[in-house]
């Protein structure tokens, strides 16, 4: 990632570099479109879950133990981070590790374009998928299932970006450490369960005992759900979960950069 900096200054050269990056992004986007498995996991699965939860009567009555919210309302942020997690743990590192396995990163390091550009292009494309997924879940939850309109759209946007930051950095760390594309799957699936547990997939955060909730607050997905839920239901989220997400972003990104092997 260190070679991402552009040392060229002439405008024509800069334009050429932009074209090269654009071409890489274009082909990466084509690959995502042609191999839709990860889009199904990160957009399709959340929408299906939402439809199922939206049809369960007990989840759609305001509950006193959830502070007057419906179960469905508390699940929307969980479903949002679930899509992001699928994408970050599998969709992002998978292609990068297979590019290393196929010798594509190595081939690129013999061209004027550094292999880090391919990594950056992959992040750009997956960011697009992530934002599309979040948008779809939000719009469907409000339009089709009567969830309340988010109280703080700015807070929601910031929370989502920081959640993406922390999770994508974790995905890059997996890409750095996983030796093969198959091992990305194994690592991703293994990490998915504890991460999603603290997000409240099986036990909503509102029902967690105090000690468990404290732990959850300091996990990437616990903090993400806390920030997203706050933005949706009360207003601009508290600083604590945002700082936790920012810290995860920095730490995972540092480690990913430290351990990434280009061949």
């Amino acid at each position: 990632m260190s070679s991402l900096s552009l040392s060229l200054t002439r405008p024509s050269v800069l334009a050429a570099r932009r074209t090269a990056f654009g071409q890489i992004v274009r082909n990466e986007a084509r690959l995502v479109r042609r191999q839709p498995t990860n889009m199904i996991g990160s957009i399709g699965l959340p929408v299906v879950l939402m439809i199922i939860f939206g049809e369960v009567p007990t989840l759609n009555r305001p509950a006193s133990e959830l502070g007057g919210l419906t179960g469905f309302d508390t699940y929307v942020p969980v479903i949002m981070v679930l899509g992001l997690t699928m994408l970050a743990l599998l969709g992002l590192p998978g292609p990068l590790v297979s590019y290393r396995e196929l010798g594509i990163l190595r081939r690129l390091s013999t061209t004027p374009v550094p292999p880090s550009w391919l990594l950056a292009a992959q992040v750009v494309v997956q960011l697009g998928v992530a934002l599309a997924g979040l948008m779809i879940v939000n719009v469907v939850s409000v339009a089709a299932f009567g969830a309340p309109v988010p109280k703080s759209p700015a807070g929601l946007a910031l929370s989502c970006l920081l959640a993406i930051g922390g999770l994508f950095a974790l995905g890059l760390l997996i890409a750095a450490l996983a030796p093969t594309a198959n091992s990305v799957n194994a690592i991703g699936r293994l990490a998915f369960i504890p991460l999603m547990f603290f997000a409240g997939l099986w036990l909503p955060r509102a029902l967690m005992p105090a000690a468990l909730l404290q732990i959850s607050n300091y996990t990437p997905l616990g903090a993400a759900v806390q920030a997203i839920q706050g933005s949706m239901q009360t207003g601009f989220p508290p600083a604590a979960p945002l700082l936790v997400l920012a810290a995860y972003t920095l730490v995972f990104a540092f480690l990913a950069r430290r351990f990434f092997r280009w061949e």
Binding site: A16, T19, A20, G22, Q23, I24, R26, N27, R30, L31, R34, Q35, P95, Y99, L102, G103, I104, R106, R107, T111, P112, V113
Partner: peptide, 19 residues
């Protein structure tokens, strides 16, 4: 060295050409 299976020959060459 291999390349992504689901890219077309022309797409791959256009990408590398832009470098």
């Amino acid at each position: 060295g291999a390349l992504p299976g689901k890219l077309r020959v022309g797409e791959i060459l256009e990408e590398y050409r832009s470098f």
